[in-house]
């Protein structure tokens, strides 16, 4: 079983989001992690390989030199090799161009299964893997909490409102991971040292044979106009005094100020 895992490097969940003077999101003093949902995908790929006792797990990401850290972490967790898609021409792209780049890279690989996270915690778009499946014309099952490989097909579970959906799909297919699918392992110290010797290939425009008009700002279908931080939340109000006066005051405020009752 050959498994490709698409992952994105994102800000740490605890990072403080700030804008720089030019109005873009500042990356000053920010720690980076593998997008947690993509980490579930890496873990699931490793578990499938371990269960089957054979196979290959390839981690793929788009980004700059910094993104190597995220791929190295996937290698330290146990992935066999990694591919970093890096080119100055990729800058200014969007979810569509990301999917175009990934599709082009993955087309050149042998694979049975493509895994990714259901959403990235930074932009929360949940677009790239879905678009990737469409471009590659593969079936996809998203927001999966349980996955079983059975020969040339997989059985995936999705949690809905009060119900569980069980989807069977033939391989090759694209699956996106939801929280609950598994508990990712730590990259062990031994894994970190072994990752040093594993292959991390860097591919750019020329290697991929991409058309410059299909990527970066030229290929993007969306454009960011501006960024704004959410307005500061107003301070809460504590109603002092004794019952039943406080209850009456609460009802009055809910009705007249908050206008929720």
């Amino acid at each position: 079983m050959k498994i490709v895992v698409c992952l994105k490097q994102t800000f740490d969940t605890e990072a403080k989001i700030q804008l720089d003077p030019s109005g873009k999101i500042s990356n000053e003093n920010v720690q980076y992690i593998i997008n947690p949902y993509d980490e579930f995908a890496v873990e699931e790929a490793l578990r499938i390989k371990e269960r089957l006792g054979q196979g290959e797990v390839v981690a793929v990401s788009i980004g700059g030199a910094k993104t190597e850290e995220a791929l190295r972490q996937a290698l330290a967790m146990g992935a066999d090799r990694a591919v970093l898609l890096q080119d100055a021409a990729f800058e200014g792209g969007d979810w569509h161009t990301a999917a175009v780049i990934l599709a082009q890279a993955i087309r050149g690989m042998e694979f049975d299964l493509i895994l990714g996270g259901q959403v990235a915690i930074d932009d929360g778009a949940a677009q790239v893997t879905t678009r990737l499946a469409e471009i590659l014309d593969l079936p996809q099952v998203n927001v999966v909490t349980k996955l079983d490989v059975d020969g040339r097909k997989v059985v995936a579970q999705r949690e809905g409102d009060g119900a569980t959906e069980v989807v069977e799909v033939a391989l090759p297919a694209v699956i996106t991971a939801q929280k609950g699918l598994n508990e990712p392992r730590y990259p062990t110290l031994k894994g970190i040292m072994q990752a040093k010797k594993k292959e991390l290939k860097i591919l750019g425009m020329a290697d991929l044979g991409l058309d410059p008009t299909s990527v970066g700002s030229a290929g993007a279908r969306t454009r960011v106009q501006s960024y704004a931080l959410p307005p500061a939340r107003k301070e809460g109000k504590i109603i002092g005094g004794e019952l039943p006066g406080t209850a009456a005051e609460l009802v009055r405020l809910l009705r007249e100020e908050a206008k929720v009752i």
Partner: peptide, 14 residues
């Protein structure tokens, strides 16, 4: 080094 950074990240996460 890359490995030292990774070890630090592991220890921080742990």
């Amino acid at each position: 080094s890359r490995e030292q950074e990774a070890l630090r990240a592991l220890a921080r996460d742990f």
